[in-house]
């Protein structure tokens, strides 16, 4: 289950940032405000969750792994 979520999060991060090459497009400053808006919409849609403003933090969006953990916390 966890691997499936992580793979989907990675896919969404790639779509949002337009970065297909990096192993983790969220690492290394790939996230600008437009990419962020896309990513938030993508994640909410894919997992049928609402991300509260208090969770939209640098820590939660530091990597695909941290974002996956957030998604699992909110879906679980």
């Amino acid at each position: 289950m966890s691997e499936g979520v992580e793979a989907r999060v990675l896919e969404l991060a790639r779509e949002a940032t337009g970065d297909d090459a990096a192993p983790d497009p969220l690492q290394g400053g790939g996230l600008d405000s437009v990419a962020m808006v896309r990513l938030l919409a993508g994640v909410e849609d894919a997992f049928a969750i609402t991300l509260p403003p208090s969770e939209i933090t640098a820590d939660n969006f530091a990597s695909v792994a941290t974002l996956t953990a957030l998604v699992q916390r909110l879906t679980g």
Partner: peptide, 8 residues
């Protein structure tokens, strides 16, 4: 820096 993290 940016508007990536709005609460910031």
């Amino acid at each position: 820096g940016s508007t990536v993290f709005p609460n910031k």
